[in-house]
Each structure stands twice: as structure tokens, then as C-alpha cells.
Design a protein around this nucleic acid. Structure first.
Lengths: 329, 329
DNA sequence: ATACTTCATGTAACCGGTTACATGAAATAA
DNA sequence: TTATTTCATGTAACCGGTTACATGAAGTAT
């Protein structure tokens, strides 16, 4: 591997001059520049990013901490972040935290030691004091963490009300909700939206709340149970995976979707188009969330002012077969 | 941020001694070590990885290049790589190539400049000369690239024969194959397996080969077309997404799965359990593939000998409703 | 003619670690 | 008692870039 000193020697100039050519700053004579560029080409010289990082204290690298990339919500988010950061010549270190505080903290530490220029974080866990001692730009994604950091989330509360009202409008009156894990903030907000909408509709009945953990299997079991115990004609699942679980439970009991039980999910992951019947869902602008978070982070890194600190993106009702009006009795 | 010199000063020793304590090499007096550790704690000193990397030429970071993380085959693979590398204290830079030669080359270049210790590559494209000039350990994953690099793949050919024979055994005689894109090596191998098995069964008919591009939508359209033109009673899809496309096409035409047309996919992604009927598939040990690739890479990085260079992992037939024997006429 | 810019380039310190080498004390061997 | 090891620590070069500062030539304003 050629170094800047090799280039300097070959071109008959000092390293400073080579550096000037490389970074296009300072004065360099045209002829000299030509010689330097030739030397660079001849030696196939590529500047060592690590040396540059050490001096400049900026690595053109960011950290992205997600709970679990194999959870189908995250790949698109990660992809968006990578795409945008790539445009700005940043590279992305991917970290899976499994929502574990310990892993998150370890990763934060490692990322800092590697001089990442910023971190995008998807978590509920990190407590204020821990995060605030981080002297690296941070953007919080998908889950509202706390005040001080810029954040990008979707309108969980509003989306939940939308889903609930939709079920009501197609004729459901006994609308159950499969709740996500209570330590996940957005799951709680969705529950709140459901509860408030149900109260407003005069349909609230706490027995219609089914506990889920965002996983298909557990949701399926829970719904099987619930369907036996209570009269239910609509299910609003806290995420799409649980909606599939609900779908399977309903079908297993020989009930029809949406005729007997209508189902709507939440997130809008591609999966919802693959089931039969296709699932209605509240679609979050997943890609856009990732892209915005990335753009905000770049701005913070570059020290530019943010027009806005907290982004709450609108969600959208996607009506598919699992809640089709005409198909309900 | 405290540096090693701050620690040295506080502990009243030289930087060399601090470094010795940090790296547990060389002689250090017990008392001295204690003082140094106290200073480290007091200053909350964390060594600067970048400086270390510059000198040692090893960054404890690897690059992972995949076509597209939002393709549902890859999240699990990526997760496996990250998990294993994490154990060995490596960090993973994720790159999406979209199978584009240009992006791959750019990423390779950037990764090298960042002194990554190794690269895991999922590609068909990179030509021999380009890759061989890379002086970083490389492991090829999922797709056989060429001889010189260690590789981890699953038995595509064998899996395809297995799938085809399975359809035969449950009674299918007009077995179609939805082929993946011809520039993807594993798609070609799956096709070869299908073709050879069909020939051996005396069922080969090239009109039964349907062109797909690994995407659901395109496969659905192609299958709709094919079902109208030819008599087909079984479909072996080159991947699971296309199997879902086939399922939708068959259902749209009012045919039953598996009674009229049996369907089997390939890959074994979680999605196959979410459809109705659930999809039979040839399951690749996705997580294991990623994990093995990561372990091989670590060995190469550490200069240890590999027991084996090319790993071809066995695949497994997962029989679900879409090919259930009893349910076929 | 003198002073001040602008242009062009080089020297060397610096970023924050690691380590080869030097130095010397204490312990052990001959 | 002297020679050799082992233990303990420090000095300074090095990794490969960047840049503050110095130097000097050429151009131009006064």
C-alpha cells in the first residue's frame, strides 16, 4: 500500500503539497498538481482513512442500533438509513441490541471509541443520564425516547385511533386489540389510541384487550383463547406479525375473515400483502422514517441547524380484504 | 476525552507502562498497575480505537456486502454474521450493493481504506481479477463466486432435485418451475437441479419453465399466464417470494392449493409460515450459513488454518399444507 | 523604490495509540 | 564475587495522514 510519502517522493514534492492536491485546498501550481496526480495514479494510491480519522476526529461512519434486524420491520428502515448515509459518503455500522440495555451500552461505547460521527438509535431503554453523557450526535428513531434528542416517529396514537375507527365503520362493534409488549413505548401509544377511540365510540370493554408480545405465535394462541371466551367481531393487532397470528387463529376456528371477524394490522410491512386474505393495516412510512432520521443526523454532524427536532410522520390506512366492507355481513 | 498521556501523567508513569497495563503484556509492577488502573477509572479513560488501528493495521471491523437487506432472505443472514462477529469483538459495516458491480467495487474500496479486517461478500458479479487484487480476507456467502475464496453456500442443486421429487411423490406430473434471474448463480443451479430431476423422471418439458426475477409480483403474473396456457399440477418456485406469487395466482384463478396445484418454495424464510395454506419449502440453514461464514472469516483474519474451504450445507424439505399429500386428489 | 499581497512549497508538529530499544535495579547462577 | 537473567520502566520513533507556520518568489499598490 502506497502512502502519501511515496507519492510525494515520486512527484518530487513534499507531503503537504500532495495533501493539498488531495483536499483541494491551499495553493498548488497547475504543473505540480499534474505531477502529483500522475504519481497518485501510477502508485494506485488511496489515502488511508484511518490516519485521516485520527487527525480530523471524524470517521465518515455512523452507528445504527436496532433491536433486531430479523424483525421484518427493520430491514427497510436500515436500508433507508444506509441509502441516505451512502449519498453523503458515510458508512453504517449495524448493531443488534435485542432491546437489551447492556448490549446497547456496550455498542455505544464501542462506537464512540471508533470515532463514529453519529448514532441512530431505536430503543426505549436507554435512560436519560446514560445517553446524555454521550458526546456524539444522536437521533432517536421509531420510538420516542425523550426530549433532548432529535427524533423521528410515526403517529402511533393517531394510527391506532384510525384503525379502531375503521373497524367500527365497517360494522364491527366488539373490537379487540392485541397489545404489544408494555415496555415498548409505541405499543403503549397504540393501545392508548385504541382505548380512547373505543371510549369515544362507547364500546370500551377492557376484556377485549389481548396481551401480545409482537410475535406471531404468541398472538395466535392468545387470540384462539380470546375468541373462545368472548364475542369478538373485529381485531386490531398492535403490529402486522400479530395480525397474521390473529388471522391464523380465526381461520383455525373455522371463522371467516372479514365476514365473521375483521382484522387490521399495524406497520405496513410487505408481509401483509402475502397473506390470504390480504391484510388491512396502518402503514407507517418506514423508508421515509429511516431516510429522515439519516438526513437529520447528517445535519447534526455537519453542525447545521435543524428546522425541526421532533418529527411525527403521518400514517395511512391501507384497506385490503381483511376488512373489506362489502364482504362483511 | 482523556488520552493515554493524561492517564500516564496522573499515575506518574510513562505512556508505555499504561499501554502495558492496557494490553497485559510486558512487565508491570503490581503497585504500578494499581495506580494506573485507578487513573484510568478516575479519568474514565477509553483507548482510542482509531489510533490503535492506525498502528496495528487491524480495526476489529469487517464489511458485509449484501444485495439488499430488505430482501427477506438476508436479515437472518446478516443477523448471524453480526452475532458471531460480536462474540469476537468485531463490528460490522453493512453495505447494500443491489447486485451492482459498481456499488460493490466502491464499497470494497471504501472498506479497504477503512482498514476493515475482512469482508463477507454475497455476489455473483465481481470478476476474478477485481477480487484478487483485494488484499483483505474475503469469504463468499450464499453464492458460489469462484475457486480462490472460502465460500459458504447451501446445496442448491440438491435442494432443487429434492423439491421436484417431492412434488412428483405427492402425485404431480406436470411440474412447472419458476426460475430466478439467470445472472444469479444459485438460481441457475436450482434450475439445473429441477431440469435433471425432471429428465430422470421422464417429465421434462421446457415449456414448464417460467421466467421469474425472484419477486412476488412478477412471478404471480408469469404464473397466471402459464396456468392459462399449460396444464400444470405442481409448481416449484425458485424462492419463497415467488412461491407466494404462484399461490396468489393459483388462488386468483379459483384453483385449490394443493388439491389442483401443489406449490413448493425455496429458502425457508419465515414468510412461508404466514400464508394460507402454509407453504412447503426447501429450507436453507440461513442463520448457520451466516454464522459459519463469520467464523471462517475470523479464522482467516487471525491467520489460522481452515479445515475446509468450501462449505456446502445441506438443505431440508419442509412439508406444509401447500404440498400435503392427503389433501391432493 | 518600498511595502504589501498573492502564490507556491516545504518543515515539522500533531492526532493517540504501540513497541523497539535502552537503562538500571534486583535476583539468581557460576 | 562476577556474570547473567529477570523485572520494571522510560524514551522516542512510528503508523499515515493534516495543517500551522516559515520561507521566498512574483505581482501590484503606493
Amino acid at each position: 500500500m502506497a502512502t502519501i510519502r511515496d507519492v510525494a517522493k515520486l512527484a518530487g514534492v513534499s507531503v503537504a503539497t500532495v495533501s493539498r492536491v488531495l483536499n483541494q485546498n491551499g495553493y498548488v501550481n497547475e504543473e505540480t498538481e499534474k505531477r502529483v496526480r500522475q504519481a497518485i495514479k501510477k502508485l494506485n494510491y488511496k489515502p488511508n482513512e484511518v490516519a485521516r480519522t485520527l487527525f480530523k476526529k471524524t470517521s465518515k461512519t455512523i452507528g445504527l442500533i436496532v433491536p433486531d434486524i430479523s424483525n421484518p420491520f427493520f430491514p427497510e428502515l436500515v436500508r433507508a438509513v444506509e441509502d441516505v448515509m451512502n449519498i453523503y459518503d458515510y458508512t453504517v455500522i449495524l448493531c443488534n441490541s435485542d432491546e437489551k440495555n447492556e448490549k446497547e451500552k456496550e455498542y455505544m461505547e464501542v462506537l464512540k471509541q471508533k470515532y463514529v460521527d453519529g448514532i441512530i438509535l431505536t430503543t426505549n431503554q436507554l435512560e436519560l443520564d446514560e445517553v446524555s453523557e454521550i458526546n456524539v450526535p444522536v437521533v432517536v428513531l421509531d420510538r420516542p425516547l425523550n426530549h433532548s434528542f432529535p427524533s423521528v416517529i410515526a403517529d402511533n396514537y393517531g394510527g391506532a385511533r384510525l384503525a379502531t375507527r375503521h373497524l367500527y365503520e365497517i360494522g364491527c362493534r366488539r373490537i379487540a386489540h392485541i397489545q404489544g409488549p408494555s415496555h415498548v413505548v409505541n405499543a403503549v401509544e397504540r393501545f392508548n389510541g385504541y382505548r380512547d377511540e373505543m371510549k369515544e365510540l362507547g364500546l370500551w370493554d377492557e376484556r377485549l384487550v389481548i396481551l401480545g408480545n409482537y410475535q406471531l405465535k404468541q398472538a395466535k394462541e392468545a387470540v384462539l383463547q380470546a375468541l373462545k371466551e368472548y364475542d369478538i367481531d373485529g381485531i386490531f393487532a398492535g403490529n402486522d406479525a400479530m395480525a397474521v397470528g390473529a388471522l391464523k387463529a380465526v381461520q383455525q376456528l373455522g371463522l371467516r375473515v372479514p365476514e365473521d371477524v375483521a382484522i387490521i394490522g399495524y406497520d405496513g410491512i410487505p408481509l401483509t400483502e402475502m397473506t390470504t386474505p390480504e391484510l388491512s393495516t396502518i402503514s407507517q412510512p418506514i423508508y421515509e422514517m429511516g431516510a429522515i432520521a439519516a438526513r437529520i443526523l447528517v445535519k447534526k454532524i455537519e453542525g447545521k441547524p435543524l428546522e425541526q427536532i421532533h418529527y411525527v410522520l403521518p400514517v395511512e390506512l391501507i384497506e385490503r380484504q381483511s376488512t373489506r366492507k362489502g364482504e362483511r355481513k
